[in-house]
Each structure stands twice: as structure tokens, then as C-alpha cells.
Design a protein around this nucleic acid. Structure first.
Length: 477
RNA sequence: GGAGGGGUAGCGAAGUGGCCGUAACGCGCUCGACUCGAAAUCGAGUUAUCGGUUAAUAGCCGGUACGUGGGUUCAAAUCCCACCCCCUCCGCCA
């Protein structure tokens, strides 16, 4: 299936990997990620690693360039050779300690036999005296070697799907769809921050006083509009689509953040509690995807869909000076998130479906948008394929991201240990998808800018009128 | 915060130092028998993972895993210590 989608550039790449054809999802199951990143399972509820590191090094030993290429397409700084030496050390230690254990186990069995027969086991016991200490010592070294390997693997990004264009940065993303026509203005379109402030709904000054920059206070119609949008979005997802509404924790532990890929690499993007090993969620994707961490779902339960409206907290480290006007980039914003758990054979269909759900919302809100496929250099860490939906913002005279829909395939499922049991087959990792549907802030920005009139009033989309107690227009005071 | 109970395979649950982790028993699942077909019934099968070997995620050999970590022991699901989570009751509290 991936082969038919595959770009020429990736064709070779995936052909190498067509090794495990039994499960019908060739490219994904054969991706280097599958063989490489069989990272230790951890029990999210307990917040620490519980399993063995699971690595199949053979493929990398034979084809180290496979992973190297994937990393290069991602512009990753990771060096495959570093991994190879780390893992070689791990395996050498493992072989040694395992043979010692074997010796101890057989000898212990002999002691038991001798005792049962009433013979003297003392000499044998004396011989085994120092064995456990030596094993303990080697165990420590092995655990460290394993941790080194694991730490390396946790920083390996997901492998791009064959259909993803190879590219350096956002300039090489590919537009795949466009809906609606940007309105022609017979007056200069005003920026949403100005409009919202003038209409008395947005207050940046007081927010800065309460907290700091990149926060906003919504008042009156703006607060009401935010609530209306949350209800409108959730109603669509739960009444017209198959999503189960969730109200999750807004702060989660370290294992949960690791499960979806925010940690260990992106700690600086997160707000962390000082006295607790808890983090504020940057998106509801984190609690929703981890909802089934450590579980094995019924195959019949797939696909399974959840949605949640939550605040999202982001430090926006590294974006100083970017989007300083308006409410495009806040430390806290409210977003409705969609998450889907899919069968590996079905996940790319589910991506199209879910992206369609996000697009539908914009169409109902009469907001022009376009859809782009992110290239390899612009994709998020955990994603194998991402569509960005971009809404038209007249004041910026451009399309801006309002939803990002990603298929993470088995990347997060492996980290969070989310599996399913196929009928008559071995348990396998599910595929996880997530998408915004939609954030309230950027949606309000788009509604204000696209619906503005010459007198500074804003016409609301018809779909929202019932959610706004019948109000059709936001009037200047 | 205090007292008590609990955490074992996909699920429930037995198991108090070696013959019990290819984990009793039950459910589920897979295959088969019976049946026109199904249900019911009967029979058989069914933990995961790491390392080695290998073309192999097939076999075979070995290791590990009974909430997590540590300790005692030749040997730990089992004994000891600490911690986490769940349940019941008490206290406090939005």
C-alpha cells in the first residue's frame, strides 16, 4: 500500500524494508522504526520503565544507511554509528550476564535435587557463593547500557510515510486542497487583535498585568464566543461523528508526556510544576492518546475516537518576537482535540477522515482554508504524515495554521504501549492519530478578520448564531 | 493524614522458599467435531519479551518478567524494607 503511494525518492528506501509481509501493512511494519524503536514498555500509571529494551539491531547492522537516510530527511543530529556502538556494548554485557545466570539456575536446580535426595549440597553452594554478586554487578552495567541505548532511541523521530514529500523546511510543503474564496474588501482589513480590543472583547493589557505577555483576557462576547465554539465543535464531533467526549487531567506525569513524544526531547516547550514531576499539557492529544497506555484493545473497538476541549499550555520557547500581535501564539489557549486509535491497515484512511472533520468545521463557519502536506523537514517529531489546515487571515493576507492532523502510526503506540489483539493473531501496536478540531483562539481570530465590516462590527457565521443566543453581529460599543 | 484489604496472562482468579511463569481453574479467542446452518455441547490449542543461532518476526538454545525498586538466600510470586496505584472505613477539605 505504501509502495503505491510512495514517491520515487522513497521507493528504494521502503523496498529494503519489505521484509515482514504477514500483516498486510507492509511499509509501516517494515519501517526501520519498527525494528529499531522497540523501546521498553513502561507503565504509565507508575511513571517509570518496567520492561526490557527491545531492539533488533540486525537490520541496522546490515543496512545502517536506512536509518541514516531517514534521520537525514528529518535533519536530525543523531548519528547511527553512536547507536551501533552503544547497542554492541549492551549486547556484549547481556551475553555475559545471561551465561552466568544460566549457570546459577542449573546449579540451583542441582542443589534442590541433592537436598531432596538427602545428599550434601554444601560444596556446590559454596561454589555459587560469589556468583550472585558478580551477576548483580553486571546487571548494573547492563542496565546502564540499556538506558544509554534507550535514551538514544527516544530521540529518534518517526519515519516519514512514503507519500510525504522530502523537503528542508516549510517552503517545501505541498498544497493539496483549497476551499472557499477570500473575501474582497473595499476597506483596509483590520487585524483581529485590534478588532477584538476595539469591540471590548479582548484585553491584552490586563492579561499582561495578571500574568505576563502571550496571555489574553476574553470579556463579554469574546468569552461567550469561546464557549460557543467549544460547544459547537464538541457537538459536531459527538453528534455527527463518532468521537467520545472526554474531560481529562490538564497536568500529566512524565511517563505520559514521554508516551506521546513530548519528552524527553522537548522539555523546554513545556510548563512543569516545581514541586511535582507533573507537566501542564500542551494539547489534549497527550492525555487522550495516553488514555489507553499499557492496554490491549479489542480489534473490534477500532477505530476508536475521542475528543476533548482543554486549555493548552506552551512555553513557546524559541519563538520570541514571533506573532506578538493578536492571539495567534499564546502561552495558554483553549482547543478541542480529536484523537483516533486505528488499525494499522486503516490508519491512513482515518487520517483523511479526521482531517475532513477539521475541514468541515471551517466550512460550517464559512472560513476559507487550504490544506497542505508537511514535508519531511517540517513535520512534528512523532508524525509519519501531517496535514496542516490553514485558515485565511485577511489582515495578514495569508493562510495560517488552524489545525494539524497527524498519523503517528505506531510511534506513540510503541512508546505508550498501546496494542490491540487481532483475531487469531499476535498482539500488535495500534496506530494513533491526532488533530485539532479546532482551537478557539485562532478560530476567533479568523471569524473576526473574515467577518469584519467597515464600521468595525463583525458578522458571525450562521452556524454559531444558535450558540450565541441568536446574536448575528458583534457591534461596537 | 490514619487503619485494613488488594495489584499474577486479553479478563477474572488459584498459588506462602526449589517439583509454580510453556502459571491450576473459569471466561475470551483460534481450530476441529456435532449441525442444513447457528446456539448449546464436546475435543484440541492459546503469555510476552530479550539475547544467540538463522533468510526468517519459522524452529531450536538460553535469559527475563507475578505493581515498582532494593534486601535476605545456592534458590523468591512466596520472607524482609521502601515506594506507587486501586478498593473499604475514619479524619480533613473545594
Amino acid at each position: 500500500m505504501a509502495a503505491s503511494r510512495g514517491s520515487e525518492k522513497f521507493q528504494n528506501f521502503y523496498d529494503i524494508l519489505y521484509i515482514y509481509p504477514e500483516n498486510g501493512c507492509l511499509a509501516r511494519r517494515c519501517s526501520p522504526c519498527y525494528t529499531l524503536c522497540r523501546i521498553s514498555r513502561f507503565d504509565a500509571s507508575r511513571g517509570r520503565g518496567a520492561g526490557e529494551v527491545m531492539i533488533d539491531l540486525k537490520l541496522v547492522q546490515k543496512q545502517p544507511e536506512v536509518l541514516a537516510k531517514a534521520l537525514a530527511d528529518r535533519h536530525s543530529e543523531l548519528d547511527v554509528n553512536e547507536f551501533l556502538s552503544l547497542d554492541a556494548r549492551r549486547r556484549a554485557l547481556l551475553a555475559e550476564v545471561e551465561s552466568l545466570r544460566n549457570r546459577r539456575n542449573t546449579a540451583s536446580g542441582q542443589v534442590a535435587t541433592l537436598r531432596r535426595e538427602g545428599k550434601d549440597a554444601a560444596p556446590l553452594r559454596a561454589e555459587l557463593g560469589g556468583l550472585s554478586d558478580r551477576i548483580k554487578e553486571l546487571d548494573g552495567q547492563t542496565a546502564q547500557a540499556r538506558a544509554d541505548v534507550e535514551a538514544w532511541l527516544m530521540r529518534v523521530p518517526n519515519i516519514p510515510d512514503a507519500s510525504v514529500p522530502v523537503g528542508r523546511d516549510e517552503t517545501e510543503n505541498v498544497e493539496v486542497a483549497r476551499w472557499g474564496r477570500p473575501r474582497a474588501f473595499d476597506f483596509p482589513a483590520r487585524e483581529h487583535g485590534d478588532l477584538g480590543t476595539a469591540l471590548g472583547g479582548l484585553d491584552f493589557e490586563r492579561a499582561a498585568r495578571l500574568t505576563g505577555s502571550r496571555f489574553v483576557v476574553s470579556l463579554g462576547w469574546a468569552a461567550r464566543l469561546e464557549r460557543a465554539l467549544v460547544n459547537f465543535f464538541l457537538d459536531r464531533h459527538t453528534r455527527h461523528e463518532d468521537y467520545i467526549e472526554v474531560s481529562p487531567p490538564y497536568m500529566v506525569n512524565r511517563a505520559t508526556m514521554t508516551g506521546t513524544g513530548q519528552l524527553p526531547k522537548f522539555e523546554e516547550d513545556l510548563f512543569k510544576l516545581r514541586e511535582w514531576e507533573y507537566y501542564l499539557i500542551p494539547t489534549a492529544e497527550v492525555p487522550l492518546t495516553n488514555l489507553h497506555a499499557g492496554e490491549a484493545l479489542d480489534e473490534a473497538d477500532l477505530p476508536r475516537a475521542y475528543c476533548a476541549a482543554t486549555p493548552c499550555f506552551r512555553s513557546e520557547a524559541g519563538s520570541a518576537g514571533k506573532d506578538t500581535r493578536g492571539i495567534i501564539r499564546m502561552h495558554q489557549f483553549t482547543k478541542v482535540e480529536m484523537v483516533r486509535f486505528a488499525h494499522p491497515d486503516d490508519s491512513f484512511n482515518q487520517l483523511e477522515l479526521m482531517c475532513g472533520h477539521a475541514r468541515q468545521l471551517l466550512e460550517l463557519l464559512e472560513l476559507p482554508y487550504r490544506v497542505i502536506t508537511l514535508c519531511t523537514g517540517d513535520m512534528g517529531f512523532g508524525s509519519a504524515k501531517t496535514y496542516d489546515v490553514e485558515v485565511w487571515l485577511p489582515a495578514q493576507n495569508t493562510y495560517r495554521e488552524i489545525s494539524s492532523c497527524s498519523n503517528c502510526i505506531d510511534f506513540q503506540a510503541r512508546r505508550a504501549d498501546i496494542r490491540f489483539k487481532p483475531k487469531g493473531g499476535k498482539t500488535a501496536f495500534v496506530h494513533t492519530l491526532n488533530g485539532s478540531g479546532l482551537p478557539t483562539g485562532r478560530t476567533i481570530a479568523a471569524i473576526l478578520e473574515n467577518g469584519q465590516q467597515k464600521d468595525g462590527s463583525v458578522v458571525l457565521p450562521k452556524a454559531l448564531v444558535p450558540y450565541m443566543d441568536g446574536a448575528e453581529v458583534i457591534e461596537p460599543r
